[in-house]
Design a binder for these strands. Structure first.
Lengths: 132, 132
DNA sequence: CTCTCTGCAAAACATTTGCAGTCGG
DNA sequence: CCGACTGCAAATGTTTTGCAGAGAG
């Protein structure tokens, strides 16, 4: 959460607005295409830079799809949490994993690992994407 | 686990041997470099293709590092499991998460998600990499 | 012999970066 | 005004692919 000055430019407003309008994870590529399609004039590099800034500030979550592409989403809390993500449309729900924090820490210590971090994401197909 | 014919070539034997010799996750790039350094004559594309085959057969695990690069490791079991991975040297321990399977399934159903899959990886610094 | 595998170089992609001009505060 | 921000194009780095020849079974 680097506390850096961030200027509110037209482009960043457009990005945040687009993210606020959905509960789904989106890739930088897709977001860029969507903004352009919506008439916004914005460069791809700007989208990447803005997203990186949001992640650094803790305002957005970034996870990796199976193919390695990064996908982003605004998060409603800075508390540690996980997601239930539709692998088709990206729609996601924030979820808590009751014991996982303590479990991971205990397990790591038992094996002599320090400076622990863990990722836990659940992928599935949401109701809307399930119907043929 | 596509059941496809796999021929035992010199290159594939070298790759499997290299993987068998370590408990650490390695990237295709690193594995390729290591094999070459060891005197093996092998192409990068071959390494990628062999690793993809091992993963498809369920013989190897593939996870993504934070930067998106894929890293691979032979797994001792085809049972669902997770890893405690050293983010420095890649050394990993297979671990079981007692409740996570049931928890993830129940959670997904409650939200109407089907065809569930989940990833859970713990990253830390192992004892060997911790000492300055 | 036949079909899979291999190597190489080219291609495909996602992401980052250098730079000169733009614009928010 | 000043420094952060932007767009573009070029650079980077990983992974994939096309193709002709090699080699496993």
């Amino acid at each position: 959460m680097a506390e850096v000055e961030r200027r509110a430019t037209r482009q960043r407003r457009a990005i945040e607005e687009a993210l606020r309008g959905t509960s789904a994870f989106v890739s930088a590529q897709t977001l860029h295409a969507r903004l352009r399609a919506g008439g916004e004039s914005i460069g791809l590099a700007t989208v990447y830079r803005a997203l990186a800034g949001l992640v650094a500030d803790g305002a957005a979550d970034m996870i990796r799809r199976d193919d390695g592409e990064a996908i982003y989403r605004l998060c409603s809390t800075t508390r540690h949490h996980h997601h239930l993500v539709c692998r088709d449309c990206g729609k996601a729900v924030e979820v808590q994993a009751p014991q996982d924090e303590a479990w991971a820490t205990e397990l790591a210590q038992r094996h002599g690992f320090s400076d622990i971090w863990h990722t836990l994401e659940i992928f599935g197909t949401c109701t809307a994407c399930a119907r043929p």
